[in-house]
Design a protein around this nucleic acid. Structure first.
Lengths: 116, 116
DNA sequence: CATGATGTGTACTGTATACTACACACTACA
DNA sequence: TGTAGTGTGTAGTATACAGTACACATCATG
């Protein structure tokens, strides 16, 4: 699903329970013009900046990394991590690229549990 | 060290052994104007596009991921990997962010050697 | 039935990105 | 001494990014 399409679906869903989730109100809360948000939701504009996407994620109670991915972006803190040790993390990611989720999760878990 | 500074150092180093590595010749090989490359090397221009940075890496026999990192960028194939499973890889990277190289390398090695 | 809120269309803006084009002064060397 | 090559300065360009500003028609309701 596209970014705009997803956004509209999610916002409409929340709006059914709470009229606060109108285009205008949400636009107000994230600090952009209503017409701009409207266009984004209908894919007449490309996804907004990382900052605005993060604000949207917060308001719509969505995961920021997920929403940024839909927007075709990668969180700048992740980019920063990679840039700090590019060869190391590049190798790691290319290695894990096609591994099933559970295998990757195992790495996360083992590292977190300090088995190193 | 900055991108431009590094570039110049590396090119000059190669030039000492081979006059092919003049600003003009290198610019020609990577497909940009000499004055543009000159300005980049003196940090009068920001680092070039990913494509041009890759071409530079090839000509200067440098690691592309390393050079892209110096340029403040992340390889688009890595961004693509993250975007394919954003929450998974975001967790992974934030978890490994402060781990020493050898710990991460151990993961890379074990995955490569098929112990999964 | 007036009033407030809603979604959207049109037009425009400022800044950044990623360069090109060309002229110029200098150097090497045949 | 002229000619080929070198590095660099100035000026300009096309495209993308990230929006704003405002008017308009529609809808709901008190």
């Amino acid at each position: 699903m596209e970014f705009g399409e997803y956004l509209r679906k999610r916002r409409e869903e929340l709006k059914r329970e709470d009229p606060q989730f109108s285009v205008r109100r949400v636009a107000g809360r994230i600090g952009v013009e209503p017409s701009y948000l409207s266009k984004i939701e209908r894919s007449l504009q490309p996804p907004p900046s990382e900052q605005t996407t993060r604000a949207l994620a917060e308001v719509l109670d969505e995961d920021a990394d997920f929403l940024l991915a839909l927007a075709g972006k990668v969180s700048s803190d992740l980019a920063e991590i990679i840039r700090s040790r590019p060869r190391l993390f590049a190798d790691l990611l290319r290695q894990l690229k096609d591994m099933p989720d559970h295998a990757v999760l195992r790495v996360v878990r083992e590292v977190r549990d300090g088995e190193w």
